[in-house]
Measured scan of single mutants.
Amino acid sequence: MDPFVVLVLCLSCLLLLSIWRQSSGRGKLPPGPTPLPVIGNILQIDIKDVSKSLTNLSKIYGPVFTLYFGLERMVVLHGYEVVKEALIDLGEEFSGRGHFPLAERANRGFGIVFSNGKRWKEIRRFSLMTLRNFGMGKRSIEDRVQEEARCLVEELRKTKASPCDPTFILGCAPCNVICSIIFQKRFDYKDQQFLNLMEKLNENIRIVSTPWIQICNNFPTIIDYFPGTHNKLLKNLAFMESDILEKVKEHQESMDINNPRDFIDCFLIKMEKEKQNQQSEFTIENLVITAADLLGAGTETTSTTLRYALLLLLKHPEVTAKVQEEIERVIGRNRSPCMQDRGHMPYTDAVVHEVQRYIDLIPTSLPHAVTCDVKFRNYLIPKGTTILTSLTSVLHDNKEFPNPEMFDPRHFLDEGGNFKKSNYFMPFSAGKRICVGEGLARMELFLFLTFILQNFNLKSLIDPKDLDTTPVVNGFASVPPFYQLCFIPV
């Protein structure tokens, strides 16, 4: 058959498939802009700032609406009420993970971030239990974070109060905490193996944040037939998995079943207990991918939040002064901060919360999916439909947070200066898919920041009023603009 005829037939089939998918069930789905064949609503979305586009569309179609990214149908949730109703009140029905062709290629359905069903539930339950087990290797997770915080302070001392970009050092600290939990080992910041790991993690975040990856996920045929950065992403992930597998083999040879040292040991012990169960989800494949998931999810998000926190503290020296006064009063100079201190430091706690609220790190979270046909607000959402959640619409709700575009710790303080919780605080998402490392991340943010401010004054290279804190939105995360500062020993 003539190649031209084959091409026309293929394009015609794709067009018909697109029209059929977009028209099927439209009477039951939430409203939304009319999609174009094949490309859907992509032309109506700013790929570099999806969150802003969703906010604009919500003003037209309401808090629940339908979009098509290519052939992929998505239902968008915008605003606290619908997000709570879906992710919390109907948590089980909305607990699936959205379709990610690239991740599915890399992870093969294993791990904790992109798995679904029984596998996801069992691996998540085990990971939560293990991360909360403060007795691994007779050292609590808090001990590990405190140790890394001391190392971080010593690295900052080496800058000798000269101007520096904190990106690298602030990236090393949370990565080392995860390494300590998974591998029972922290690395020197100049260790070549550690630097290679950091390089792969950072490069992957840069790649994932590009519009090209959005295109690959919406048109998965590209993955096999086109060159691009997605190939580098898959190569980096394969490198990390190979490295983790080597460490798993080392653990198998040296493990003491009665004295687990780290996450890998705990997983291997669980595998041993379930070795007679042919349906067990505790396999080497799941261990390797879960460890890679924890490394990827637990490094860049925390380091970016820390980097943004220091920029905001530079911009608002009056806030920094209040935090340091609270540190001096509650902790002093002669001991290290600990998590028990947080309950006695409402202002510092409010500042950490406000940093996370203000920066809105992951504006749309990772997409969910419905696990069955769901009736939601008089609409029928078919099983498997991807759910896109606007966390921006919750964290920047102007009824809950007056002047949401302003950095103001009073958003989390009552009139008496006591810490005030808010149900709208969802930087880790909400419901059954809430970030498994939430507790660890909150511990790291509090301890790293208090250790830094206990030991250093922060000095800006320019007038604080002239510092730009506008986030650089890159399609996946909101990151701070480049800046330098000086760490002046107190």
Rank of each mutant, 00 (worst) to 15 (best):
T299M: 08
F194E: 02
K375N: 13
Q276I: 12
P166A: 07
C164N: 08
R342G: 06
F282L: 07
M426F: 09
L361Q: 06
S95A: 13
F487S: 04
L201Q: 06
E104F: 15
F126T: 01
D349H: 09
R105Y: 07
K459G: 06
Q193A: 13
L170V: 10
L361G: 04
I141N: 10
K421H: 15
P464Q: 11
T299S: 14
E92W: 09
N176V: 00
K84T: 10
D466P: 05
F428D: 02
C179T: 08
D373W: 01
E444C: 00
E154S: 12
T305G: 02
F187S: 08
E72C: 05
F187V: 04
K420D: 03
G117F: 04
I223K: 06
R261N: 05
I244T: 04
I244C: 05
S478Y: 11
G439N: 09
A430R: 05
G137K: 12
A106D: 04
N398E: 14
K420V: 15
C13E: 00
I264W: 00
S53Y: 03
E328A: 13
P260I: 06
C338W: 05
N378Q: 14
K273Y: 10
D468S: 15
R357N: 01
V83M: 14
L54F: 12
G417N: 15
F94N: 02
V472L: 12
K52G: 13
A103Q: 09
E241Y: 07
P63C: 08
Q324A: 08
L294V: 07
L306A: 04
L233P: 04
H411Q: 03
N218V: 15
V352C: 10
E81M: 07
Q340G: 14
E85L: 06
F425M: 05
M339Y: 13
E328Q: 12
V330L: 05
L485S: 06
M136K: 15
G135R: 15
I169P: 08
S242H: 14
Q146G: 10
K84D: 04
N258D: 14
T389N: 03
F183N: 07
K399A: 09
W20F: 12
E328V: 10
N474A: 11
H353K: 03
D256I: 07
R329M: 13
K275E: 10
V177C: 07
G475V: 11
C179R: 05
D224M: 06
P471R: 10
L287I: 06
G431W: 01
E354P: 01
S12A: 12
K322W: 05
D143Y: 09
Q484T: 12
S393Y: 01
F376E: 00
T55W: 05
E72T: 11
C13H: 00
Q146N: 10
A292Y: 15
I289V: 12
D463Y: 09
F65L: 05
I88G: 06
V83R: 02
G475S: 15
Q193H: 15
I222Y: 07
R377Y: 07
D468Y: 11
S51N: 13
Y80A: 07
L102T: 08
M255W: 10
S18Q: 13
G117Q: 07
G111E: 02
F134R: 14
Y61P: 00
